[in-house]
Design a protein around this nucleic acid. Structure first.
Length: 423
RNA sequence: GGUGAGGUGGGAGAGAGGCCGAAUCCACUAGUUUGCUAAACUGGCAUACGUAGUUAAUACGUAUCGAGGGUUCGAAUCCCUCCCUCACCGCCA
């Protein structure tokens, strides 16, 4: 959520940012400014009335103590009138506050100055790339065929148990999954991230804090009996650990990593996009989250990008890093780098990580703050990234490292997987 | 799920209609004292919104004692609803 102060001081900046993000409803800015002005005028009236009632009440108490009952009764009448008026004002004020809030949450975050202009994924900027396309000239099978060949994943069985998009990993497939999770978590903790294992369901306040709510509830599974949402990413429970917290300076920066299953309804997808592991309703992911001083959050973002890049390199996959253009960025991000790996048999790029700086957009909702050097309380910047999302990594590992005789396991993973090939 | 006891500042914990944004202790912090450290003493120490001020320091106002309603001139305190915590019982991996 954008801070309301920004609307009073820098309306032009907001309009520019919204245009870059390809946001259409620019009238909302003027609407918010108008509501804010009316709200503040009413706030003054409300406070003044409350102040007069408070001081009159004090006087009544003193008069009663002195036994001047008649005077006290007179004052009660005056107070009664003020309270009547105060009630009306408070009602309108509350309505305005709600309207302001409801409007404010509709506006996306401001894009960073380095975000490229553009509306579609084609206009994302390739920052750099690495690895090379494997030579699979002889035979190249897509991962779903390899999964069947080596009995790694049973898609039909998952459909029976639950439904489409809930694959069952079996045998070496399940083991590969576990190996990747352990490898990723170790890699992160060695870089100074503290490991946590959060709840996989969250309440409404948490979903609101990281901006899944309002408006995006359709993307999450919902346990209506209890009012809980299945998490779409560990970002939600992990970042919300610091909701309503003023972080002691000694604990900054906060660096956390967590493994979790992720649940996404992904309504409306079809065709080759959902074939095999390309897009599923439940998948595993290891996430990194940082809460940092705003002064250096962009250095931290670069550091996180490098961190994820080295991880991808260690798996021997061909990858590229994209700086997302304004129109393709998420609602709450200020700057996002997407990581894509090349799926050599499908001959297409698959997104496996997204690393973003949200600046204060989430923390303003969550009230996650710290005390800066001068003792002033201010919002921290929140950042997160996947390191990594498993299914598409598995898809690319299978496809890119396949040989006629089996699938080669990258060296870094061998200690976790226990052998050098799947066969 | 049942019964009982509770939810007060960073922590512990008093307060039981007005003198309470809240005693006291601890933590933290500034200072005095002091060969150093420690101790002692003195002061400071919640958050949000608003008004004035330079988008400052600061001053003032309002709100906040789990959340939301109610009673009252006045509520941390009384009443109602909900949430949560703890203990015991039931159930259970």
């Amino acid at each position: 959520m954008l801070p309301i102060q920004l609307f009073r001081t820098n309306k032009e900046l907001i309009l520019e940012g919204l245009k870059k993000k390809n946001f259409k409803d620019l009238d909302l800015v003027d609407k918010i400014i108008d509501i804010d002005e009316r709200r503040r005028a009413l706030q003054v009236e409300n406070d003044n009335l409350a102040a007069s009632v408070n001081s009159a009440s004090k006087n009544i108490g003193q008069l009663m103590a002195k036994g001047e009952k008649e005077k006290a009764e007179e004052m009660k009448l005056v107070v009664a009138q003020n309270k009547e008026r105060a009630r009306e004002v408070a009602e309108v004020l509350a309505a305005l506050e709600k309207e302001q809030h409801d409007t404010l949450v509709q506006l996306p975050n401001m894009p960073h100055s380095s975000v490229p202009f553009g509306k579609t994924p084609e206009e994302n900027e390739v920052v750099r790339s690495g690895g090379s396309t494997p030579d699979l000239s002889a035979q190249k099978l897509p991962h779903w065929e390899l999964a069947a060949k080596y009995s790694l994943i049973d898609f039909e069985l998952g459909t029976k148990i639950t439904g489409a998009g809930f694959p069952v990993f079996t045998g070496q497939g399940a083991r590969l999954q576990r190996a990747l999770i352990n490898y990723f978590l170790n890699y992160n903790t060695e870089a100074g991230y503290k490991e946590v294992c959060p709840p996989f369901m969250v309440n409404e306040a948490s979903a609101y804090g990281t901006t899944q709510l309002p408006d995006k509830e359709g993307q999450m599974y919902y346990a209506s009996e209890d009012g809980f949402y299945l998490i779409p990413t560990a970002e939600v429970p992990v970042t919300n650990m610091y909701r309503d917290v003023i972080i002691p300076e000694s604990e900054m920066p906060v660096k956390l990593t967590a493994y979790s299953p992720c649940f996404r309804r992904e309504a409306g997808s079809y065709g080759k996009d959902v074939r095999g592991l390309n897009r599923v309703h439940q998948f595993d992911k290891v996430e990194v989250v940082q809460l940092v001083n705003p002064a250096n959050s962009y250095e931290v973002l670069e550091e996180m990008v490098n961190h994820v890049e080295r991880l991808l390199q260690s798996l021997g996959l061909q990858y590229r890093i994209l700086r997302l253009c304004g129109g393709d960025m998420s609602f709450s991000s200020a700057l996002t780098y997407d990581f894509e790996v090349y799926s050599a048999a499908q001959e297409r790029w698959l997104e496996v990580s997204s690393v973003s700086n949200f600046e204060t957009f989430q923390t303003n909702r969550m009230k996650a703050r710290f005390k800066d050097g001068s003792g002033k309380t201010q919002l921290v910047h929140s950042l997160n990234g996947s390191s990594l999302a498993l299914p598409r990594i598995i898809a690319c590992l299978l496809e890119n490292h396949q040989t006629p005789d089996g699938i080669n396991i990258p060296d870094a993973l061998v200690p976790y997987f226990g052998k050098k090939t799947i066969s």
